[in-house]
Amino acid sequence: MRTGAIVATAALTASLLGTEAALAHGVTGGDAAFMSAAAGWNIGPYLYLGAKHMVTGYDHLLFLLGVIFFLYRMKDVALYVTMFSIGHSITLLTGVLSHIWLSPYLVDAIIGFSVVYKAFDNLGGFRTWFGVEPDQRLAVFGFGLVHGFGLATKLQDLQLSADGLVPNMLAFNVGVELGQITALGAILLVMSWWRSWPLFQRTAAAANVLLMAAGFILIEYQLVGYFTETTS
């Protein structure tokens, strides 16, 4: 399937699914209530909440799936995931502790674009359309910065107590990394089984089309939310 047809198929799939996709994950419900009311050091709970956020954070997991899709050596997986983790940690901590805020809708739209970008790269889109191959290490690091900032904007909406904020955020970030390791381990197990399947190469393109469609859905939903909010 030609790259142009693949992109068009992914965009069409996203449009057909519409804007009923779930809102990009944040911290809600009882977790949000706890964090809004908590004061002082709460290392254990914040470790748990950070891990829970990553394990249930489908936008992060979709991007990481795209990143490791064609990585076969563990040292390459470790390198790219470390680049993402460093970027994610920098903006998560800096955003919350320095009170840097942008519209979550716009940040989440860029996060959706990161999923589209990686699927497009996996499909050979940059080589086919532009004749170039971007440095994926820098791209993963850059998108890691965006993913971390997306979470930082949501945490700031909770108006967290300044009492114990630094240790709690450090614990939350450690929890995020532990959750990422757990989720990544499960993804790698599935990918290892899939790669041993004779039809992997024939199904890989279709999987990345679906991955791209998921990214388009995230972008569409967030932009609709942004324009609805700004015009209401």
Rank of each mutant, 00 (worst) to 15 (best):
H99T: 12
R137K: 14
F70H: 15
V96S: 05
D121K: 02
I110K: 02
G112R: 04
Y117N: 05
T94G: 10
L79P: 01
H88T: 09
G95M: 03
L138A: 14
Y117S: 02
L123Q: 11
K75C: 00
I68F: 14
D76K: 08
L123T: 06
F126A: 11
L92E: 08
M74P: 00
H88N: 04
L97A: 05
L93K: 10
T91G: 09
L93H: 10
P134H: 01
I100R: 09
A139P: 00
T91Q: 11
D76A: 12
V81I: 15
F69G: 00
I68N: 05
G125V: 11
Y117T: 00
V96F: 09
I111D: 03
G131T: 06
S103I: 06
Q136I: 01
M74E: 09
Y80H: 14
F130Y: 13
L123C: 14
L97K: 06
Y80W: 06
Y117E: 10
T94C: 13
S103D: 13
L92Q: 06
L138R: 05
L93V: 11
F69K: 02
Y72W: 12
I100C: 04
V115W: 07
T91D: 06
W101M: 05
V132M: 12
R127W: 04
W101V: 08
L123S: 04
K118T: 13
S85Q: 02
V107N: 10
E133G: 01
D108H: 09
Y105C: 03
E133I: 01
Y105P: 00
S85P: 02
V81G: 08
H99V: 13
T128Q: 15
G87R: 12
M83Q: 14
V116I: 15
G125Y: 12
L123K: 07
L138Q: 09
I111S: 03
A78N: 07
H99M: 10
L93A: 15
T82H: 10
L102K: 06
N122R: 07
W101C: 00
H99W: 10
F120E: 11
S103P: 11
G112V: 01
V116A: 10
D121P: 00
V132Y: 07
G131Q: 07
T128K: 06
E133D: 14
V81N: 14
K118D: 04
V107D: 09
S103V: 02
P134M: 02
A109W: 03
V96C: 03
V77M: 12
L97N: 06
L97D: 08
I86M: 10
F120M: 13
M74C: 00
I86L: 15
L123F: 10
S114Y: 08
S98R: 01
W101I: 05
R73D: 15
G124F: 13
V115K: 11
T128S: 15
V107S: 11
A78G: 03
T82A: 11
H99Q: 13
T82K: 05
L97R: 05
Q136H: 08
V81Y: 09
I90L: 12
W101H: 15
Y72I: 02
G95C: 02
G131P: 04
W129I: 12
Y105W: 06
P134R: 05
